[in-house]
Nucleic acid binder design. Structure first.
Length: 402
DNA sequence: AGGTATTCACATGAAACTATTCTCTGAGTTAGG
DNA sequence: TAACTCAGAGAATAGTTTCATGTGAATACCTGT
């Protein structure tokens, strides 16, 4: 046994296609960010006054996922920090991702995360929020300094909390005597600023920058520049890159997606012992990404979600796929199911929300339609690919104990 | 035929409730001086 | 008297229930021709 494993390890070492895989993984910050020069310059020119010790305008940045927002901002942040260290200026720039569950998805936790970043500490719970605020203020206001807070995916936070959180933030300056803060908000949702309190809008959106999606040509450039560091010589050819770029361009120009695609394709090729990445692996990678995403969701959702999803699955099978069905059908089926597997039956109200959430996750397709005299409801269709159905069913039956 | 009023079957929203986890506070207890 | 323990009050959070209100268009119901 040990010998065979040794062989496997040896061959993996020898046949690796990668020079440095991390170059393709999320979180890697490249030396250059192609096709974002303009945006970076803009961000930098807006942030620059901080080096003169002036408070800078609040900045708001939009752009779809994978358009380089975070990367660019981080880049400018690092440059500014470097420079400020040379010049001996007190500047703090803190980056918070508001979407990370259990880290920064509520008002309390965002503040707590900031405080930890700044070297303080707060308990995870038990404290009134306004006390956390005052601790935060104390921490910042203990000396004269400029603080720039970067909130990534800020739209997620506001959806979950409310926009008076932003209001308190923008007003924070008036409570500080020595320090001053500026805010950079990053959002995927272009319409985000339109839907919030006008007072907040005007103050948060003092400056705005839009990051447009990459097109296929730009994506190719990005992939090419990363390939040099990521792969050994002659592992990828132009056609593969093109295909990758084309795939990702279709997905609203998501560079992250393109990189994932390439990395996973390479991993698959490597596993097959190939020394070159063939185009077919791009297709395989695409399927694998989709597949893994769905399976991960199905596995990790709580049992009530699983029960609802299982009901939908059963109904789909019953109806031979063709006919759509409605909230009421699902609820009835779900009730029976609960009886059978002996779990608590939730209200229809709740099931309605759960269906909406499963829709959000992309496992089903649900549209609100009006059937006239027969009321208004959601028309639901399963959107899990046929070849995954069995696998999903197995997971659900196992975890529900049907 | 054309117009309008109803009505269904939920959607959607807001508030309130529950259980869990955690802090903080202060009363009561203990042990050492 | 200082240190320690422990119960109770108060918070945050996630998941849910309760109550309330909204809604789009097929159909029932008129209306006048």
């Amino acid at each position: 046994m040990g010998v065979e494993l040794g062989k496997i390890f040896d061959s993996v070492m020898k046949n690796s296609l990668f020079k440095n895989k991390s170059v393709l993984q999320t979180g890697y910050s490249p030396d250059s960010i192609p096709h974002r020069e303009k945006q970076i310059e803009l961000v930098a020119s807006i942030m620059a006054p901080v080096l003169r010790g002036e408070r800078v305008s609040n900045l708001f940045i939009y752009g779809k996922t994978g358009t380089g927002k975070t990367l660019s901002v981080q880049y400018v942040k690092d440059e500014i920090m470097k420079r400020s260290k040379e010049m001996g200026i007190e500047i703090r720039m803190e980056y918070i991702n508001c979407k990370l569950k259990k880290v920064a998805d509520t008002e309390y936790r965002i503040l707590a995360a900031l405080i930890t970043e700044l070297g303080g500490s707060v308990p995870a719970t038990g404290l009134p929020t306004d006390q956390v605020y005052s601790r935060f203020i104390q921490l910042i206001d203990n000396k004269k300094q400029l603080v720039i807070l970067i909130f990534d995916e800020i739209d997620q936070a506001v959806k979950k909390i409310s926009d008076d959180f932003l209001y308190s933030l923008t007003r924070l300056n008036s409570e500080l005597s020595k320090a001053q803060i500026s805010i950079i908000g990053i959002s995927n949702d272009v319409t985000f600023l339109e839907n919030i309190d006008p007072r907040v809008r005007s103050s948060l959106g003092e400056e705005e920058i839009v990051f447009p999606p990459y097109n296929a040509v730009q994506l190719k450039d990005i992939l090419n520049s990363r390939c040099k560091d990521a792969f050994k010589e002659n592992v990828v050819d132009e056609a593969v890159i093109s295909k990758c770029a084309a795939f990702a361009a279709r997905e609203h120009g998501d560079a992250r997606r393109a990189l994932d695609l390439l990395r996973i394709a390479a991993e698959l090729a490597e596993r097959d012992g190939k020394s070159v990445i063939d185009e077919v692996y791009i297709d395989q990678a695409n399927n694998k990404i989709e597949r893994d995403k769905i399976l991960a969701i199905v596995e990790t959702e709580p049992s009530q979600f699983q029960a609802v999803l299982y009901s939908i699955l059963q109904l789909t099978k019953q109806r031979k796929g063709n006919e759509e069905f409605y909230t009421g059908d699902i609820f009835n089926h779900y009730q029976d199911l609960c009886g059978k597997i002996k779990i608590e039956i939730l209200t229809q109200r709740r099931i309605s929300d759960i269906i909406a959430e499963i829709d959000m996750l992309g496992l089903i397709n649900a549209n609100v339609i009006s059937k006239g005299r027969h009321g208004r409801t959601r028309e639901v269709k399963l959107s899990i690919p046929q070849n995954l159905m069995d696998k999903v069913e197995v997971i659900l039956t196992e975890s529900l104990g049907v």
